[in-house]
Design a binder for these strands. Structure first.
Ligand SMILES: [Zn+2]
Ligand SMILES: [Zn+2]
Ligand SMILES: [Zn+2]
Ligand SMILES: [Zn+2]
Lengths: 146, 146
DNA sequence: CTAATACCTCTAGTAACTAGAGGTTCAAGT
DNA sequence: ACTTGAACCTCTAGTTACTAGAGGTATTAG
């Protein structure tokens, strides 16, 4: 039998270890994504290494742009012994797809905006060329709506 | 003297003409971006061609990703006779810059996600490769944080 | 033992809408 | 003139993922 060495950390230590702000950790707890191992006598949260891993998982997924709902699902899948594999791949593929869509749209925006800011003002300054371009989509070279 | 022909439209007509949903128009009014020309006897909003142009301006700017705060400023600038030009260019340039930043970040995300979904599962299926990749940023090829 | 720091809960604010409840007005047909 | 259905009104609350602040308690270092 191994003795469990209880080296638990406060929320502040966890926060530093995972580079996640304290209020965000509490928010995740409220969202049932992570819970403290236990509380101190004075009701302060205490975390183990396991929760640190969990929080790093959440942070990494968030950094990669997954929604908290996706993260919630992924955590559930992680805990299941097996068979969870396909769902996880599906979530990732779906997210990749949405990233691609947003990417394409941002590229269209970038194109139009570049054109817009590079417009030169006409001699008789009736109106700013940027404002004119904003007022009239037909000046745009392509579609760029969401 | 020209007689003003008062052909005003309801919020529903305006909505269709500008492809902006009715609740969104009311929201814009609350945000002081647009106000009805007048109200009917029964308190219903009535709009003129001028407001339609204004709403199209707003929609176009939104479609190009400008924030409502930017739009508010741009509308103010549009109304000023002149001298407003530089501010408008500045707003557009600033927005273009932020689009470029987001674009670069999305490209990093796309790269990592593509790698992640294309991982093949190891023979002894201890854990899903996607979940493993999410649990460990050191497997990533680059930085991808916001 | 005390003072500084860290922690607690709870509420509200952010951006840009969207949805719904509950009630009023308008326009068209009879 | 009357009715009925569509369109309109206001107001509140929900969405996402946090962040900020108020007002109070716990821990820890000196
Ligand atoms: Zn200009
Ligand atoms: Zn356009
Ligand atoms: Zn897998
Ligand atoms: Zn990573």
């Amino acid at each position: 039998m191994e003795r469990k060495t209880t080296n638990l950390m406060s929320i502040g230590s966890l926060s530093k270890a995972a580079s996640v702000k304290i209020p965000t950790i509490r928010y995740y707890e409220q969202q049932e994504l992570i819970i403290a191992t236990c509380r101190s006598e004075g009701n302060q949260r205490l975390y183990s290494e396991k929760e640190l891993q969990r929080l790093r998982f959440i942070k990494h997924a968030r950094d990669l742009g997954f929604s908290l709902n996706d993260v919630r699902e992924l955590i559930l899948l992680e805990q299941q012994p097996s068979g969870s594999c396909e769902s996880a791949h599906l979530i990732a593929a779906r997210h990749l797809q949405s990233v691609c869509v947003r990417l394409a749209q941002l590229e269209r925006l970038k194109h139009e905006l570049e054109r817009m800011v590079s417009l030169t003002e006409s001699a008789e300054n009736k109106r700013c060329s940027v404002i004119k371009a904003l007022a009239d989509h037909s000046q745009c070279e392509g579609e760029h709506c969401a």
